[in-house]
Design a protein around this nucleic acid. Structure first.
Lengths: 331, 331
DNA sequence: TTGTAAGCGTTATCAT
DNA sequence: ATGATAACGCTTACAA
């Protein structure tokens, strides 16, 4: 344990605790000479500032809490990269909490963030219902990324548009029997499906929606069942890349060729889909940029809360998604 | 902001702060009746315990810090899952810090953990040299996962053995021209390469080692150059699955077929390699189990530090890796 | 069982 | 520029 405290440094340097504090935060109010001396003594003693104590004592330590649903899904890594881009340039601190793929870890993770007294929370992939999210966001500002929650600051891609362009792409390629593999129908996250429905009905086609979990293997099994059914579709649109990969698996396992025999479209444009071996046509929600926007909004909310600025109304930032066509939809 | 403090709850419930504290930690020393009453008042007021204050005040809050190198590499998600399996069953708290793919974030992340006064650190994927790691582990016990650091508690697979079985598998398949794509040669992480060398020389073959970064795209470029060279190898052994995927990319981009034209072996058995579309032969270091072992060791170290138990000597736990043969090495 | 009071390691306010 | 000294919100002997 680092048992050396600010007190020790102060004594050894022959100054008061206050000066050590000022010196270590390079705040104004200490001469360059003594500051150098203090830091010198501090490092010699192996002093490491205690953030816990600092945060208890100060009201001015900005800390942003980040919730990520699932470390196995790269989209969250992308979002996190974006968040860090922005936060690293501020003097705020980051506290991370990770959920579980089935959503069972959400409550505990959020509670941990609250107990850590973060000033704002950026949540990516929360699986609770809209009203639960709103309830959670009572005391502390909450920014939802990749999911639009009414009443809550949200930063996401236009999933309806994304669902539409993906489906339209398939329709334009001549497909008429397109299955949509939808995510768990927790409240929220229904834009992609809505987009699919809009495009399908606009084209006068019959929608086929099959729900799957967020587990890739489950998706493979579900897709396999569909492929083996009496009337297999000629194309799949999966609600995200992970699921799409499961579909590719099912296809390959049956000796069929993605793109040639059955078309597949994913959603997220994770680096996985970009890999030539996979070459998955997908919708790019620009996740890193989403993370950046969310972080900026978080910083803004903290500033608002700190100052006396009246809390502005809910902000909803919507990025335009892009279709990235690859081999999985090329004949 | 949750402005309600324990004081508020105490006043409202008509008891002292001490009782509230006891009640909320469900420690002994409070009657069931008053406890129920306190919790009731607390929830009605929306009281959320302040962990920051708790940790400052108490010496008995176990917190383990976890460092993960790169959220984009699934092996770290696996390790984290294992760690959480164990920690969730204890009453320790988890603090997460994430590095950067080029290692430039290591120092800052570790410092953050120190400043948060974690009682022990589990580090997965540190890119500093052995001596730097040892220096870092001075004040706080450090468990290194997936990498054996002399002098430091380490939990990892036998990478030399892993490198050997992977290479031997290739040799047995008839390959004589096998390139090893090695990771950045920071001190440490050289077991896989050593294993490769041992197997290659034992078979009287000529080693071909090409260093790459941890970036998958870099690996693709490097592999492409090698495939296009005058004497292309018939097989690649990549230091991890990410790199192996880059190799598959290079192969596919040239119209060649992995397994048929060029064999590829990876390392980590991430869910990616398990996917039938990829079907990558790889070495399974049993990452989740590694995470579990590391967490158990961390818990042990904390207990040692808390009690007066003399700190035991450095512990090195080595798991036996397994070869998982898939299509990428099948003719 | 319940209350009192002394820390925990900082920051911040006010003197000097 | 520097030094006392109250907070910060909680835990924890020690009393009652």
């Amino acid at each position: 344990m680092s048992r050396i405290t600010m007190e020790d440094v102060a004594r050894e340097a022959g100054v008061s605790r206050a000066l050590v504090s000022i010196a270590y935060r390079d705040a104004v109010g200490v001469s360059d000479a003594t500051k150098a001396h203090i830091i010198d003594v501090g490092t010699r003693l192996g002093y490491v500032p205690n953030r816990i104590a600092a945060r208890l004592a100060s009201k001015n330590v900005d800390t942003v809490g980040v919730f990520l649903q699932d470390l196995h899904n790269e989209v969250f890594a992308d979002v996190f990269d974006g968040i860090r881009d922005i936060i690293d340039d501020s003097d705020a601190q980051l506290v991370l909490a990770v959920g579980r793929i089935d959503g069972s870890g959400d409550a505990a993770a959020i509670r941990a963030l609250f107990e850590s007294r973060v000033d704002v929370i950026i949540a990516a992939g929360l699986m609770m219902t809209d009203s639960e999210v709103r309830a959670v966001a009572q005391g502390t500002p909450l920014i939802s990324v990749t999911r639009d929650v009414p009443g809550i600051d949200s930063v996401c891609a236009d999933d309806v548009a994304g669902g539409t362009i993906a489906t339209a792409h398939l329709i334009e390629s001549g497909h008429t029997n397109i299955v949509f593999l939808s995510n768990p129908q927790t409240q929220g996250y229904q834009g992609r499906q809505r987009g699919y429905l809009e495009a399908i009905t606009a084209a006068g086609l019959e929608p086929r929606i099959v729900p799957v979990t967020y587990d890739r293997h489950d998706a493979e099994v579900a897709a396999g069942l569909i492929v083996d059914s009496p009337h297999p579709p000629t194309a799949f649109f999966a609600h995200n890349d992970q699921t799409a990969l499961g579909v590719l698996d099912a296809i390959v396992l049956r000796g069929l060729r993605p793109g040639k025999d059955i078309a597949v479209v994913g959603y997220d444009n994770t680096s996985l889909s970009q890999a030539p071996v996979i070459a998955l046509t997908t919708v790019d929600p620009h996740s890193i940029e989403l993370g950046r926007s969310a972080a900026r909004q978080a910083l803004t909310r903290m500033a608002d809360a700190a100052g006396d600025d009246a809390a502005e109304a809910r902000v909803s930032i919507v990025h335009e998604p892009t279709l990235v066509a690859r081999a999985s939809t090329a004949r």
